[in-house]
Every structure is written in C-alpha cells, then in structure tokens.
Computed example of a mutant assay.
Amino acid sequence: MIEKLAYMHEDAELGLVPSKYLSFDLYVLRSNKEICRTNNHDLFLFFKKHYSKKYKSFDIFLNAVLNNHLVLIKKPNYWYSLKLDLEIEKEYSSLGFDKFLKKFSKISFKKGELELNKSIIKSDQYSTISYLLYLNRYDISFDDPHVRYSIIKREDYFE
C-alpha cells in the first residue's frame, strides 16, 4: 500500500501530477496530539519542503508518518485538524470495532458493500467515525451521484 501511495509523478511542464489516490484521506499526528487529515499529494509536497534531507525517499517518510513512528511538528494551514467527538470515542471503546462498524453502517445497494448509516450520524461526528474506521484499515469513499459514503476495506482498494 505504501508503495502505491508513495508513487508520485512530476512532469517537467505540468509539475506534480495528481495521484490516483488523491481523494484518499490520510491521518497524521502532530506533537500536541493533534490529528490532521491530509492526502498523499499534500504529504509529498510537505516531505519535499521539510523532510527530504532527513528521509531518503518519500515512501520511507510516508511509512514513518502513517505508522505513527514520526510525529510532525509543523503543519500547513490547509490541513484539516480533527477534534474527536468524545461520545463517539466512548462508544467505540465500549462496543469494540466490529459492533461499532455494524452500528454506524448499513448494507449498500452495491452487492457486498457497506455504507455509512447517515441517518444516525450527526455532521460533527463524521470525522471521528472516519478516523476510527481509518485506524482499523477501512476508508470512506464518497459516491457523488448517489450521495452515499461507501465503507471500503483498505486492502480491497489497493488490490
């Protein structure tokens, strides 16, 4: 997965070409226990500006950041900082992941898929639920024409 996320193509005329995984949310930690949502494109630019001398390659940097071995000190202004919803965190802790997933998802119209059960999720809880799914190797994909949030096992997405 890291290799696929780390692949970035820089064109002489166009500059950094958007990655196939650009819409994929990634979460990184900051020194003050802040959680930031970003993507591989922005992390690559951040790596080039602040960490390219310290890390031999972007995939090594990405692995360190995504596996929480590296806590970032700086943060671009455009990264979204999460404030975790305490009620959702508490529910996650008491239910465990499987029951949590079952509670906040429903069967999708697409065979064999799940989607977020938006009817029970307040707008300010979405980021926390997304982050907790991310920690358990699930990601959310937005289906614009159908206004659905599909829940995808990360390993299935990268096959």
Rank of each mutant, 00 (worst) to 15 (best):
M1R: 09
M1E: 14
I2T: 03
E3R: 09
E3M: 07
E3H: 07
L5D: 01
L5F: 03
A6M: 00
M8N: 05
H9G: 03
E10W: 06
D11V: 02
E13F: 15
L14C: 11
L14T: 10
L16G: 03
V17L: 15
P18W: 03
P18H: 04
P18V: 06
K20P: 06
K20C: 04
Y21R: 00
Y21F: 10
Y21G: 00
L22S: 12
F24C: 02
D25V: 04
L29K: 14
R30D: 11
N32C: 11
N32F: 07
N32V: 10
I35F: 08
I35Y: 03
C36R: 09
T38H: 08
T38M: 07
H41D: 15
L43Q: 04
L45Q: 13
F46L: 05
F47R: 05
K49L: 12
Y51N: 02
Y51L: 04
S52R: 10
K53Y: 14
K53T: 13
K54G: 06
Y55E: 01
Y55L: 02
S57Y: 09
S57A: 09
F58G: 00
D59L: 04
I60D: 12
F61Q: 01
L62P: 00
L62F: 02
N63K: 13
A64N: 14
A64T: 12
V65L: 01
V65T: 05
L66W: 06
N68I: 13
H69M: 12
H69I: 11
H69V: 12
L70H: 05
V71E: 09
L72T: 05
L72S: 06
I73Q: 15
I73C: 08
K74L: 14
P76V: 02
P76Q: 03
Y78D: 15
W79R: 06
W79A: 06
W79T: 04
Y80R: 14
Y80K: 15
Y80G: 11
L82H: 03
K83I: 14
L86K: 13
E87M: 04
K90A: 13
K90D: 12
E91L: 10
E91D: 14
Y92R: 05
G96F: 03
F97A: 09
F97K: 02
D98F: 04
D98G: 07
D98C: 08
F100W: 00
F100V: 01
F100N: 01
L101T: 02
F104L: 00
F104P: 00
I107M: 11
I107H: 10
S108D: 08
F109R: 13
K110W: 12
E113Y: 14
L114T: 09
L114D: 07
E115C: 09
L116Q: 02
N117Q: 10
K118M: 14
I120A: 01
I120P: 08
I121G: 01
I121A: 03
I121L: 02
I121Y: 00
K122W: 04
Q125E: 11
Q125V: 08
Y126R: 15
Y126F: 15
S127K: 10
T128A: 04
I129A: 01
I129W: 00
Y131G: 06
Y131C: 04
Y131T: 08
R137P: 03
D139K: 11
I140T: 07
I140E: 03
S141R: 12
D143I: 13
D143P: 01
D143G: 05
P145A: 06
P145I: 07
V147I: 14
V147C: 14
R148K: 13
R148H: 09
Y149D: 10
Y149P: 06
I152K: 08
R154H: 01
E155T: 07
F158M: 01
